[in-house]
Amino acid sequence: MTTTTTTTSTTTAPALDWRIDTLDLDAYLRRIGQPAASPSAEALASLHEAHVRTIPFENVDVVLGRTPSLELPDIADKLVHRQRGGYCFEHGLLFAAALERLGYDVVRCMARVGFDKPDAPLTHLLSLVSVGDERFLADVGFGSGLLVPLPLTDGARTEHGGWPFRLRQEGRHWLLETPTDDDGWHVAHGFDETPQRFVDYVVANHYIATHPKSPFTRRLIVQRKDHGNCRKLLGRGYQVEYADGRPTESKSVTPDELGDVLRSLDIVVDSDELARLREVYAGE
């Protein structure tokens, strides 16, 4: 008689090393002006808002022909020590590392900006953060997005700082929405809860920083969200949007004015970088 033994194998996701031990947590907290505090919904909201209001959203490196490094020590050197900004991958990886060092449970995910468009790729990093029995959407790298986290519940809303957002669940997806002028809602991005690996962000980062269809390779983008206003530099156009419905202020920025405008947006570049950015502006 022949005996057949059946072996059942299970596949588990590999443990991921996000190198959070390389982060100088004290330096990061000094940068955003926050104390180290035990995990709580209130502390998470304070950290999120302080990060968004302190560290600029910008794509200067991409405009200069550089692909931003996603290695945590490089991100911290740039956003914390050199007082620069970055885009979603840099912001999100830095914030997630700080949260984990503070004791939060964090899952790094990916979203599609322009979710309802069939050709929209997965190119945005966000995090799902657990605090006790509650979970939150933390999204510090969405430019003119959330000031504070949203509870990960269908229909959750916030108007913090005067900026309304809604989170809606549709099947396995979560949709972050903003109001439209006709009292409707527009999908800013959509995501599911699939955990991502570091290499997933490396691939998306390469697309964002180099592909001709990427919005970040076409023009300089700087955004600063605050209570009641959002300041933006989009190519040659500088504008201030107001949460209370006041008309948007707009003006055109010349190459000679670029340095002053960047400084007003808390972007620190050296003289060589500024000269190269002015050359890009002159060629537009």
Rank of each mutant, 00 (worst) to 15 (best):
N59H: 11
V269E: 09
C230A: 13
N59Y: 05
G235L: 10
G145W: 04
P35I: 08
L72A: 05
N229I: 04
L93A: 05
L99N: 04
S46L: 13
F216C: 01
L150T: 04
G65I: 11
A96S: 15
D154Q: 07
R135M: 05
K78E: 07
W174F: 14
V269A: 10
F191Y: 15
Q196K: 14
A96M: 05
H173E: 09
H81N: 14
W163F: 10
L72V: 08
T254S: 13
V129S: 12
S252Q: 13
T254Q: 06
D133P: 06
T22D: 14
D182Y: 00
G237E: 15
V129G: 11
T11A: 00
Y28M: 08
H186G: 00
L262S: 02
R157F: 07
V268M: 06
S264H: 08
A36H: 14
D119A: 04
S9F: 13
D266C: 01
L234H: 12
G33A: 04
V129W: 07
T194V: 05
L258Q: 01
G143P: 07
T22E: 12
P35S: 08
A76I: 08
R101F: 03
T123I: 13
L102G: 02
L94E: 03
R236A: 09
A120N: 09
E42H: 12
V199A: 08
H124C: 10
A209N: 03
Y242N: 02
V60Q: 08
P73A: 10
H173S: 14
C88F: 11
G92R: 10
R66C: 14
S214Y: 03
A50E: 13
R108V: 09
D74Y: 01
T217L: 04
S264P: 00
G85A: 09
V268C: 12
D266E: 12
D270M: 03
T178F: 14
L233T: 12
A138H: 06
V187A: 03
